[in-house]
Computed example of a mutant assay.
Amino acid sequence: MTALRRLGTSLAAPALAVVVALVITTLVIVLIGQNPLTALQVLVDFGDTPAQQTQAIVVILNRAVPLFLAGLAVSVAFRMGLFNIGVEGQYRMATVVAAGVGAAVVLPGPLHVLLIMVVAMAVGALWAGIVAVLKVTRGVSEVISSIMLNFIALGTASFLLTGPLRGSPEGASIITTERLPASAQFPALNGLFGALGLAQPRGQLFGFLLVAVVVGIVVSVLLKRTRFGFDLRATGLSPSAATASGIDARRMVVKTMLISGAIAGLIGLPDLLGRTYSFGTEFTAGLGFLGIAVALLGRNSPLGIAFAALLFAFLDRAAVPLQFADIPASVVTIIQGTIVLSVVIANEVSRQVTKRRAGRQSGQATPPAADATGPAGTRIDARQEAGA
């Protein structure tokens, strides 16, 4: 019964957020003179033919993969009580450098892809490490430093793209790095559709989906089944209590930001290795900021983040069809923004309810005042400090 109650509490906040977002979006659509049912039909319309339906699935999955990685990067920092708002800059820097390195070397296929991944993770970790060092050595808020580093990253990436790593000719309307060779291109997963007896889509399903699944499993095991994950969660709950228990909180900040940045470095690789094969001025932007919303909706759980990424990808796919139905594509942005606002409020309400319930249970378990001065009283104080 307790497990079911915990599951219900975990699902209540995101479910309430989605419901509130749909209600508000319905009101907005009515106010602009459109039919909400038409918008709903567009959202759930995957096409008339089997090929169109599988193509819609491919579009959703391809969009969900980088969103999932972005959500994971943000959630690792969240677990530590850190707000890594610099994921946007970290993945942009990682992708442009990885694209340049990948185009400059010649290696066998698997090694070439592995090199690009290692470079991207290293650059992302390095960029996030700057935030961690500033925090532990100078007490600089990670929010402020990561925001500033986002601007520095965008400017540096632009310099690299138009200077040392430029691959497009002079006068080209779209500036890109050199195109990656075939050995650096990640194979697609379209063979799965044939194996499942489904029609072949027009586009390619990112093979990087498998890497994202592996990363999600590794992060889940790391956070829930290892000593490091326990130390990370404990430090996030109460740095003072963690330090008193022998955990080096400053070192944990650095390690956590390095891991978060390394995951952020992978965000741009699904597009780079599976579709564009180069980094350019039209490369997908904004994934780092969307990752914050995905992590919040997924309540920092890898499984929850996966469902949140699929939801956001499902909404993004409908932007163009909505325009064909004379409904502004900004409706999608309204839904996503309302979900973020609603989930923040719902999470806070859920946290307060859980805190009050825990307080009542703790009060019932507290021994009489005359006996509360011994070891039992000490344990109560430790629990209260950990919950602070």
Rank of each mutant, 00 (worst) to 15 (best):
M1P: 09
L11I: 07
V20H: 08
T25V: 13
T38N: 10
Q41L: 13
V44Y: 13
D45A: 11
F46S: 13
Q52A: 13
Q52E: 15
Q55A: 12
A56W: 06
V59N: 13
V59D: 14
I60A: 11
P66H: 00
V76W: 06
A77M: 05
F83A: 05
E88A: 07
Q90F: 01
Q90T: 03
V97D: 01
A99W: 05
H112A: 00
L115A: 00
I116Q: 01
M121E: 00
G124H: 01
L126V: 07
I130C: 02
V133D: 02
L134G: 03
V140G: 00
F151K: 04
L154F: 11
A157V: 09
F159S: 10
L160N: 03
G163M: 05
E170R: 12
S173E: 14
A184V: 08
P187F: 08
P187C: 03
L189V: 05
N190A: 02
A195S: 10
G197E: 04
G197S: 07
Q204D: 10
Q204A: 13
F206E: 06
F206I: 10
G207P: 03
A212P: 03
V214H: 04
V214T: 10
V215G: 00
V221A: 11
L222Y: 01
T226A: 11
G229P: 10
G229D: 08
F230W: 13
L232P: 13
A234Y: 12
G236Y: 08
G236S: 05
A241Q: 13
T243H: 15
R251N: 13
V254K: 11
K255D: 12
L258A: 05
I259M: 02
I263N: 05
L273T: 10
G274W: 02
G274H: 01
T276D: 07
S278P: 09
G286F: 05
G286I: 04
G288R: 09
A293H: 08
A293Y: 04
S301K: 08
S301C: 01
I305F: 05
A306N: 04
L310R: 02
F312R: 02
A313E: 07
L315T: 02
D316Q: 13
R317T: 08
V320D: 03
L322T: 01
T333I: 14
I339T: 09
V344T: 13
A346T: 09
E348M: 12
E348P: 06
V349T: 09
T354M: 12
T354N: 14
K355F: 15
R357K: 14
R360P: 09
Q361C: 12
S362L: 15
G363D: 14
A365V: 12
A370Y: 15
A370C: 07
D371C: 14
Q384R: 15
A388S: 15
A388N: 14
